[in-house]
Design a protein around this nucleic acid. Structure first.
Lengths: 336, 336
DNA sequence: ATGAAAGCGCTAACAG
DNA sequence: CTGTTAGCGCTTTCAT
């Protein structure tokens, strides 16, 4: 039993003036007399008037809403991105509609159409792990809706992008391990089709190359989460006697590997050093504390909205895709 | 340069029929001929027609959207609640607008009005830690918008609620510690004004009482996160020699306390057992693995939407507040 | 089986 | 400074 909500025309009728005058008064338009504004404001206040955003958006053809598609809300990196996004979006008068793809392409497609159906003014996306084609994103662009990718980007599409310097981060942390005297370094990598994964692998390779270390053919395993570490534990343990370090594509994988090794009598970092990527809070909680690469999630979030809002608010400006690269910094802790 | 999006009247014009017919055809109304339906559907398909949800909602006075206010997206418990909520909401044809209060009352109030301005059909709330008054929620009810609280509820308001049996969970895990021979158990508690905290404290007290253990006046500290453990480390370490267990109101606090003790030479659980609450994934990752109480976040999320949607779809049904209590189960691991 | 008309709540061009 | 009018895209009587 939705109690009647006051509308602009209710106020107009009660005050014996026109709806447009009320609308203008509420917007503090300069063309309305102080007296009228006062009467309108007061009545609005007293009656608990609240604008109907739906009607406003429909009329203005702009919803002041940004759509966000993210693989998993639960990851610390993504939640800090969300915080950054909300911060700047709110400050700029935009709302954010958050959707999770759960790393599933079809869910991502559904999210995307739902956002477009809601007439969001722009979309922010970090692509799901299992997304292979990009046609659904192409559709967004064709509709003239601005789109910015962050972290997990598409290379096929000419859009603005905000990324971490994964290559350099991986190169730096691998170099760090080498400086510490490690030479037999295993890399636990993400699937090949994930750009982020390829970049980190490239950084790892580069560090080896710069230090004249030949990469062993069996030293790169595709393994990027806890479950896979468990699934591959035999292989990892078979490698263990020959290696002195592991660099994993993310912190969860690094920690899972670390615990596997510890459970099997290896000392970290004495026998085998461990390094991760991402600087999840858990990295500072495990024993030993995890050496890892910090990613600037919050800042990346802010930058992404910034780029997006510029596109939204300057729709006619000639399009020149921009890429913002955030440097990542090695956090040396106890594990390596 | 938003390219023109096809509308119902565009289709109507192209087909030489009326907009209402197109609308009905798209809804598969029985009063439209198969032939017309076919033509409409095909044209819709080809032109990439998509309904304008804003217009629909405005006209139908129902947005098929549920508002969600949550303290912190980043917590595992809350993200599983979100998953449960989304699951059932989507399946029932509703979208979810997620807002974070960041444990801040004024942010919570802003979120609430934003959701109402967007004409959500109902609201799901877990109250922020720093929320002391409940007038902003009262306003929601006065507007006739259904409201369901979950986990962090308000006792003042007569609404549906979905909660964990915090009392029983705390009683059970404290009893467990006692059965293991611990008798000097410190409780790290949440602020007094948080019902969840009071309930867990009550469970702790009850377990002591049932076992004829007198509660030491200095054995309950208000301390419910990592920072506070650090802030109170002197007091905790001063207590340490006299105690053989700690039960903390959540896992993060438990783990912080555990690491503080370990860093100061105490063995866990040999010297001091540790128990948490919530079963965050991190509980299974720390060393030793944390004994804790599992909360059914996903199920609680589903139940909350379920209750909410019932209210939304039966607005005239007489109101009888319902409370759903989810039992929590003790997860015995290594720490206690 | 289809169409005409009205209206959800709001804003903006135009007129005065 | 204010009012009139029209319309955003859609649904829903009420006709026919």
């Amino acid at each position: 039993m939705k109690s009647h909500l006051i509308s602009i025309s209710d106020i107009a009728r009660n005050l014996g003036i026109s709806a447009s005058t009320v609308s203008r008064a509420l917007k503090d338009s300069p063309s309305i007399s102080a007296r009228t504004k006062g009467r309108v404001m007061e009545m609005a206040q007293q009656s608990g008037y609240r604008p109907n955003i739906l009607a406003m958006s429909l009329r203005k053809q702009s919803s002041k809403t940004i759509g966000l598609i993210i693989p998993e809300i639960a990851h610390h990196f993504f939640s800090s991105v969300i915080s950054g996004i909300e911060e700047l979006a709110y400050a700029s008068g935009y709302r954010v509609m958050i959707c999770q793809s759960n790393e599933d392409q079809s869910r991502e497609e559904l999210n995307l159409t739902a956002l477009l159906d809601h007439r969001v003014d722009g979309v922010l996306v970090s692509v799901s792990k299992n997304t292979l084609g990009f046609d659904h994103f192409r559709k967004v662009l064709e509709q003239g809706v601005p789109l910015v990718f962050f972290d997990r980007i598409s290379q096929e599409l000419a859009t603005d992008r905000v990324v971490t310097n994964d290559y350099e981060g991986a190169r730096a942390i691998t170099s760090h391990l080498i400086e510490k005297g490690r030479r037999n370094i295993v890399h636990l990598a993400a699937p090949r089709y994930l750009l982020v994964g390829r970049e980190r692998l490239r950084g790892y390779d580069q560090a080896l190359y710069e230090n004249n270390i030949e990469r062993q053919s069996d030293f790169v395993l595709q393994c990027d989460n806890r479950e896979q570490v468990l699934a591959l534990q035999d292989e990892i343990l078979k490698l263990a006697p020959r290696i002195d370090a592991i660099f994993a594509v993310n912190d969860f994988t690094a920690i899972a590997a670390m615990q596997l090794l510890q459970a099997n009598g290896y000392k970290v970092p004495a026998d085998i050093a461990i390094a991760g990527f991402g600087d999840d809070p858990i990295a500072s909680i495990v024993t030993p504390k995890l050496t890892t690469v910090e990613q600037k999630g919050y800042e990346m979030g802010k930058e992404s909205v910034q780029l997006l809002i510029q596109r939204i608010e300057n729709p006619d400006k000639e399009f020149q895709p921009r890429t913002r690269v955030f440097e990542s910094t090695v956090k040396v802790r106890e594990s390596g």
